[in-house]
Nucleic acid binder design. Sequence first.
DNA 1: CTAGTCCATGTTGACGTCAACATCCTGACC
DNA 2: GGTCAGGATGTTGACGTCAACATGGACTAG
Lengths: 356, 356
Amino acid sequence: MTAPAPGRRVSMADVARLAGVSTQTVSRVSNGQPNVVDSTRRQVLDAMRTLGYRPNSAARALRSGRFRTIGVILFTLSTTGNMRTLDAIATSAAAEGYAITVIPVEAPTQDGVNGAFTRLGELAVDAVILLMEVHLLDAASVSLPTGVPVVVADSDAGDRYSVVDTDQAAGSRAAVQHLLGLGHDTVVHLAGPSGSFASQRREQAWRQALLDAGRPLPAVHRGDWSATSGYEAGRAVARTDATAVFAANDQMALGLLRALAEAGRRVPHDVSVIGFDDVPDAVAYLPPLTTVHQDFAEVGRRCVAGVLRQMAEHSAEHGTTLVPTRLVERASTAPPPAAAAAAASAQSQPTRRNTR
Amino acid sequence: MTAPAPGRRVSMADVARLAGVSTQTVSRVSNGQPNVVDSTRRQVLDAMRTLGYRPNSAARALRSGRFRTIGVILFTLSTTGNMRTLDAIATSAAAEGYAITVIPVEAPTQDGVNGAFTRLGELAVDAVILLMEVHLLDAASVSLPTGVPVVVADSDAGDRYSVVDTDQAAGSRAAVQHLLGLGHDTVVHLAGPSGSFASQRREQAWRQALLDAGRPLPAVHRGDWSATSGYEAGRAVARTDATAVFAANDQMALGLLRALAEAGRRVPHDVSVIGFDDVPDAVAYLPPLTTVHQDFAEVGRRCVAGVLRQMAEHSAEHGTTLVPTRLVERASTAPPPAAAAAAASAQSQPTRRNTR
DNA sequence: CTAGTCCATGTTGACGTCAACATCCTGACC
DNA sequence: GGTCAGGATGTTGACGTCAACATGGACTAG
């Protein structure tokens, strides 16, 4: 009989026996090679269907040295950015016939990263996408296996790795300029954690934009990306006479909105608020949040394209690719109270700038 | 020389040559087997380090028939639930020495599911976790490869598969009873899409809870889980005299809160709102949202435990495991206006129930 | 009619690892 | 000193696939 031993997976040999051909012919049919006569091909396909044949990817990988799999190393899926980027990575990798293996790092510590890298060495991946800030990578004593293409997202290591990132600086600049353009004297910044590269970049761009416009530079409030930390910072902001706040992400902006509402400061009438990310919920915040849209999907696509290119060209290119942002105007920004009042009293007078 | 050919990965043979032992001894050291003398072991380990040896997982998998990888099939990562469950799956799988391969389904259509299942057949996975509603699975004409352990999350197919799910019914009941306990006459429901199993379960439990309490059954408002749809529904709710709303998820509750605020209905003073999920941001909503906490991490852990158990026992068990929920009381629920007024005017009088 | 060409199909061996079996060495005990 | 036990180490082959080469039949051209 041609029935394979029970409990064993169907192999090419089983199919070949049933179809009455050699395993090589089965291989050719399986890989869609052209030099097989139609009648033979049909026989083989029939046999495959009958037996429920599935190519053994382990044997294939062993033979070819390629797993058709990309590893993604990240700390947590529980941030909007990581999740949406991963989604895009998985989708565009699938389109190229690659699978995605997720390698979580238990804790954002040196040990955690080392552990992930050690596991990585044994994992069946052809390339690696790092979804994390590279200074943690530097702290890791284990280096990446050589010869494995790597692309880093969300980092500043363009001189050593291939990096894909959102254009944090341009986005932040757009946010500040939008507020200044509305007539605000200056813009307060609610920054992310000081250890975060994205946070640093946004903060620096905010500072530079104010400097370039010759505006006063208020003290920085700092959160940890969470809505709760935004709320804490918001209570402090509410005690000041700030008229415009640029929050480094939407979640902190959400907390900020709540703190301002509780303090009786109306948004955008008394205070304008702008966020960063454009999370799906931002449109439903109270009020709907003006924010800087990040194209995470594009970041993910470019990460995949990057590692595939490195694989194809056998190169270890480096350099930074910046994905542009887009300002999404909703209802949380408006001219400052004084400017609005001035505009109301004398509509002809330009309200480019006002002093308190 | 012992240097391996450039471009080739280091194999056991290379290590064996450098250490002056057989490949089998290298294998033994690599797998931590005890019957190797210390001096030999040291030599081998040194050689491994020198050459940067990493076991070839393809060869290992080919030999053992096990990939130490679990496939997770899902439509999108862009829902809180999927993302957090996947995070937990990845973490607990890693703890057991398993990697996670993400298999995205392009579209929630029959074709999309079929495509994913076809790919699955060739993928290097030992087991599968399905993060999707099973009615789509039924529509798929391709069946799961036999002999592969499967666990389904978020579904109702306990009679055919091993299912892990949140206890939707108990959570919904708790939400309704919380509101009734505060003195509301009845509770309006803002349901999820009618095609969703989770949505159906929550809606049914809400209905049953009201029936059990002998309360009137208001018409159902329906959204699509998004904050925007919650806002639309909220505008409709605001035109009614409803005093309590149970939203089927937090995002819709967020939109609902905005619609109520815009309509001048104060939460919780005029209208109480309760959500479902307990997303991290819920604490920063305006007001902070009372909601039903889902333990996605536990769902993920049990999914992994389930497939591992099936692998170990070589069984294809089925049945449903329910993960309990927890009501988180924040600031969006309160007694209804009439009851509050009555309580204020006559504190001694019990306010169990009030009529409009 | 024969030499030559092209193409379908078959045969062989190698990818890297590890289980099973084979061998060899050390040391204990009579 | 000889025998034997037991542990360390080596040898062989198989897992499933596919590239490279081998074979052989059909058809063309001179």
